Amino acid sequence: MNPLPAPPGRTAPALPTGQVHRIRGRLVTVDQPLRLGAGGRRAAAAVQFLRECQSHDLVVRWIPATDDPLFTGPAHEVSAIAGLLRHLPAPGPLPGEPPELAVWRDRHAYGQLHQRRGPDFVTVMDRREPSAAARFTIDDPDLLATFRTVQVPTAVAGLSALGREAVDLLAAERLAWVTGGWVVALPPRIRRWPVPCTDI
C-alpha cells in the first residue's frame, strides 16, 4: 500500500513590502517601530501592512516609535487614532505609554471591521463600537472604484474630483483613513471565519 502524500505546506501570505518584518508560523514580528501618528505615506503604508496581517489572521508584534504622536500626543488625538484602528493588531506595551494604547489591546478582536467582495459591490461590517455597529454596501461605481484604489496608500491630491469626494464619504464613515495627504482603506478582507455568519 502506497503511503498518502504529505499535505502541501502552507505558504506564507504575501504581505505589503516596506515594513521590515519576519514571519514564523502565524507570528509576524515587525523589526522597526511603526510611526502611525506621524501621518503621511509611511503611516498609511503601516496601516495597510497591519490590515493585511489582520486579513490573514496573523499575530503581529510591533511597537510605536517613542517619539511618535501616537505615543506622545494629546490624549484626545491618541484616543481618536486608537479607536479608528482598534480592529488592527495592537501595539505591544511600552513603559510610559498612554492608557489609550492599553485600551486598544484590551478591545481588539479579529473581525471587528471587515469586508467581503462581490462582483460589483463590497459589503463592510463595522463593530468597532458595539453600541453603534453598522453594515455598509458599497455599490456606487465611483465610490467602489475609489474604495478599490485606496486599498493601497494613495495621495489624495492625485485623485480626481470624484475620487476626492468618494474619499470624503469613506473617511466620514470611518472606512478610510486620511493622514497627511494620504488615504488608505481600513477594512481587512476576511479570509478566516470565526466571525459569525450572521455578521455578514
Rank of each mutant, 00 (worst) to 15 (best):
L113T: 00
E165R: 15
R135W: 12
D67R: 09
P95T: 11
M125W: 12
L175K: 01
E52L: 06
G180Q: 05
E52S: 02
V103G: 03
L34M: 12
A38K: 06
T66K: 02
V122N: 06
S160P: 10
P187L: 06
G158Q: 03
G158L: 03
V59L: 09
L169E: 13
G40Q: 12
L84F: 13
P91M: 01
P99T: 03
L175C: 03
R117E: 07
R41E: 03
L144W: 09
A6W: 13
E173Y: 15
V78C: 09
D140I: 09
Q54I: 14
E97K: 02
P194R: 08
G9F: 15
P98V: 09
C53Y: 11
H56W: 11
R22D: 09
P74S: 13
T66L: 04
F121V: 07
V183R: 00
Y110K: 06
Q112Y: 06
P5D: 11
E97V: 07
P188D: 01
V28W: 00
R135L: 15
F136W: 11
A132R: 13
P119A: 09
V178W: 05
S79K: 07
V152K: 14
P13M: 06
L144P: 10
A166V: 01
P187T: 03
L70V: 00
S131N: 14
R117H: 09
E52I: 05
I63V: 09
R24W: 15
G9L: 14
L4N: 05
